[in-house]
């Protein structure tokens, strides 16, 4: 199968859905000629024109509100918030309005909107362009939260998200945009709420999200040299999330690390750990559940400090060994 990048996979999903459904359109800052801050929408303007690849002023609240207003009146907008950090400016519309309208109105509205946004550090962009704020959104009933880690998942999950009738926060990782992987040319859906076992293993489960899936894969290859067999579970969507696959994996291995880039305190790893400890998998644990997350600091600029602020491959290896050799 052909290989394309994560960014190309997202673009392909957008292009195919826009061809298929005239109600799908893009709205956000610098999507058109510029192609988006990370080039994801590059070239779509040529095919679909300014009407459907709609550049906005720098007005995140208006972007989210415009997507919402369009969604409840029959369109399927895909909004882009240039950096996840800037979702803060759109938060009122996303959290108070989009997430709740359907429920507040007794279920009598559809909100088919996607908010795509790049998260994560590693680009040297410092504290206001590097955050991973997914846990905030998972705390809001009415939203779905999607976090693909591979080009294949990115395409299939985005297609499912666009076709879904709920507001979706689709979180991309900047460092993944140039990663490559096999992606079918045709359209396909990956159901929201279904985890993927990225690697089968016996000794230890790593539940990883977004770029941490790739780091966990790298770590697992090193650990394999020491005879440690790692199973990697990628939830792919955090809301809803696939508890069963995680529980089954932990029952098999008896040891688990939850790893994400977002700050450890209040991060999604806490949810995973708590869920496991409340589940039948608790009785199968041979060791305490371990969480790896970002340090509780804003992302620093300095290359070395930035690297230290979030889990790296060696951190995952060390954490795995601590669990195995305890």
């Amino acid at each position: 199968m052909r290989e394309i990048t994560y960014a190309e996979a997202i673009r392909e999903a957008l292009r195919q859905e826009m061809r298929k459904d005239k109600n799908v359109f893009l709205i956000g800052e610098d999507l058109g000629i510029y192609g988006g801050a990370f080039g994801v929408t590059y070239g779509l303007l040529d095919e679909f024109g300014e009407e459907r690849v709609r550049d906005t002023p720098i007005s995140e609240a208006a972007i989210a509100g415009a997507a919402l207003g369009a969604a409840i009146t029959g369109m399927r907008p895909v909004a882009e918030i240039m950096f996840m950090d800037f979702t803060t400016i759109a938060m009122e519309q996303i959290v108070n309005q989009a997430a709740k309208i359907k429920f507040m109105f007794g279920g009598k509205a559809k909100v088919p909107m996607v908010v795509r946004t790049p998260a994560g550090s590693g680009t040297g962009a410092a504290a206001q362009h590097s955050q991973s704020l997914e846990a905030w959104f998972t705390h809001v009933p009415g939203l779905k939260v999607v976090m693909p880690s591979t080009p294949y998942d990115a395409k299939g999950l985005l297609i499912s998200s666009i076709r879904d009738n709920n507001p979706i926060i689709f979180i991309e990782h900047k460092l993944l945009y140039k990663t490559t992987g096999e992606v079918p040319e045709e359209e396909y859906e990956i159901p929201l709420g279904v985890a993927d076992i990225k690697r089968k293993g016996e000794d230890l489960t790593i539940v990883a999200t977004s770029i941490m899936v790739q780091r966990a894969i790298s770590a697992s290859k090193e650990l394999e040299k020491d005879g440690i067999s790692v199973e990697i579970v990628d939830p792919r969507t955090l809301k809803p999330y696939d508890k069963k696959t995680i529980i089954e994996s932990v029952k098999k291995t008896g040891k688990v690390i939850a790893v994400h880039e977002a700050c450890k305190t209040g991060g999604f790893g806490a949810e995973i750990a708590a869920m496991i400890s409340e589940s039948e998998a608790f009785d199968y644990l041979d060791a305490p559940i371990k969480r790896l997350g970002g340090l509780d600091i804003p992302i620093p600029y300095n290359r070395n400090l930035e690297r230290h602020a979030v889990p790296q491959v060696e951190d995952i290896i060390n954490a795995a060994k601590e669990l195995i050799y305890r």
Binding site: A64, G65, A66, G69, Q93, Q97
Partner: peptide, 9 residues
């Protein structure tokens, strides 16, 4: 903001 979206739609 929603109104502008409705107008756009």
């Amino acid at each position: 903001p929603i109104a502008s979206g409705v107008g756009l739609s």
